[in-house]
Amino acid sequence: MQPPAAGTLRVLHLSDTHLTGDGALHQGSVDTTAALESVLARVDGVPGIGLVVISGDVSEDGSPESYAAVLERVGGWAERHGAALVAVPGNHDLREGFRQVLSNGHVLGEGGRPVMHTMEYHPPTVPVWGQSLVAGRRIVTVDTSVPGAGYGEVSEASLERLRTALAGDHAPHGTIVVLHHPPLPAPTALHEALRLQNPEALADVVRGSDVRVVLGGHYHHHFAGSLAGVPVLVAPGVANDTDVTGAYDEESAYVDSGALVVDVAEDGSVWSTPLRVPRPDADPLAFHLDAETVASVIAAAGKH
């Protein structure tokens, strides 16, 4: 891949790593630790990455051990490449375990240097929040997870903190917002039930601001769209790849992994390159849920 243009921040955008503390297979079929290692090996030669982002569902079980495994692998990769590292919780994450290992998600700063944090306790009811400055860009993480649910929501407190951050001094080259549940239409009935509930509220905050791009995950497939005129990029899943062409009321995924390489230029323009890391030695179908099973998951985890 060509090196980034002068003044450009190159971002490695990972999502939905779904690591487990005990090494259990995701959906009974995918070794997510091996999948993550394959993705990191694939992008090892990509030049000029200054920021690594994990946009949620970092863990499958919310255990401190799973976050430690992610930190060892992704954090080690970022340090070796001199890149900052930022992560945000998703619906599978547990805030207590996330904070214990990753603090507010802003783990490494410019050059891959550790970010110092004060030891402050927050109950799980309080969304994870953080911001940092990388290569003249303000990186803001917004926790869209809802404890005990699969759908997403930006709380009033998080909206106000984002509004305040964007109303402050402008970053030299704008803001990048990272969240899990993307403010875009959902590809399947299950994801529709687990979508972000208040994208309009988020749009009201970012409209007219210096936000250059919103990075999200959750859908386990690459999507691109916009919110209030701001590009929205959804990364492929590390754990598997959603079958977006199947029956709407069913849910299937393939054994496949991917990532995005996102270039954010000084003038605010954005260029995204999706990368796939197929695993041809595995059964191509990661899992399949029929319509009845999908309905039961929606009843348990969707918005009522």
Score class of each variant (00 low, 15 high):
Ser103Pro: 05
Ala201Trp: 10
His181Phe: 03
Val115Ala: 07
Glu60Gln: 14
His173Val: 15
His191Ser: 06
Glu60Thr: 12
Val146Arg: 01
Ser132Trp: 08
Ala5Asn: 13
Ala253Phe: 01
Val261Trp: 04
Glu72Ser: 13
Gly152Arg: 11
Leu227Gly: 02
Gly111Tyr: 10
Ala41Ser: 11
Thr293Arg: 15
Ser272Glu: 06
Val128Thr: 14
Ser155Gln: 02
Ala282Asp: 02
Asp256Asn: 10
Ala189Met: 00
Arg137Gln: 12
Glu192Asn: 10
Asp169Pro: 15
Asp256Leu: 14
Ala203Lys: 07
Arg137Pro: 03
Val206Ala: 00
Asp31Ala: 03
Arg95Ser: 14
Leu19Met: 02
Ala5Leu: 14
Gly23Tyr: 01
Glu160Trp: 09
Ala135Ser: 03
Pro47His: 13
Leu40Ala: 00
Ala300Val: 05
Ala235Lys: 01
Val294Glu: 02
Val178Leu: 03
Pro187Phe: 06
Arg279Asn: 07
His18Asp: 06
Gly246Ala: 01
Val70Phe: 02
Ala157Ile: 02
Val244Gln: 07
Thr125Leu: 09
Gln27Asn: 11
Asp263Ser: 01
Asp263Gly: 02
Leu71Val: 00
Ala84Trp: 12
Ala69Ser: 14
Leu94Ile: 11
Pro183Leu: 05
His180Lys: 06
Glu79Met: 15
Thr188Glu: 11
His26Arg: 14
Val74Asp: 03
Asp290Val: 14
Pro3His: 11
Gly258Phe: 08
Arg10Gly: 13
Leu85Val: 00
Val58Gln: 01
His170Gln: 15
Asp241Trp: 09
Val255Glu: 00
Gln2His: 13
His304Phe: 09
Val46Cys: 08
Leu25Asn: 03
Tyr248Ala: 00
His81Leu: 10
Ala69Trp: 07
Leu85Pro: 06
Asp281Gly: 13
Leu275Pro: 08
Ala235Tyr: 04
Asp283Phe: 08
Gly268Gln: 01
Leu25Met: 09
Ala171Trp: 08
Val297Met: 12
Phe287Pro: 00
Gly45Trp: 04
Arg207Leu: 08
His220Glu: 07
Val154Phe: 06
Gly7Arg: 05
Ala259Lys: 08
His106Lys: 14
Pro89Glu: 09
Thr118Trp: 12
Gly258Asn: 06
Ala83Asp: 00
Gly109Lys: 11
Val58Ile: 04
Arg95Ala: 15
Val39Leu: 00
Val270Leu: 11
Pro278Arg: 05
Asp256Ser: 10
His304Gly: 14
Asp204Lys: 13
Pro274Gly: 03
Gly111Asn: 13
Val74Arg: 00
Met119Asn: 15
Pro182Glu: 04
Ser226Glu: 15
Gly168Cys: 09
Val115Lys: 05
Val88Leu: 06
Gly152Pro: 07
Val43Gln: 06
Leu215Gly: 07
Pro114Cys: 10
Val140Pro: 08
Ala224Val: 15
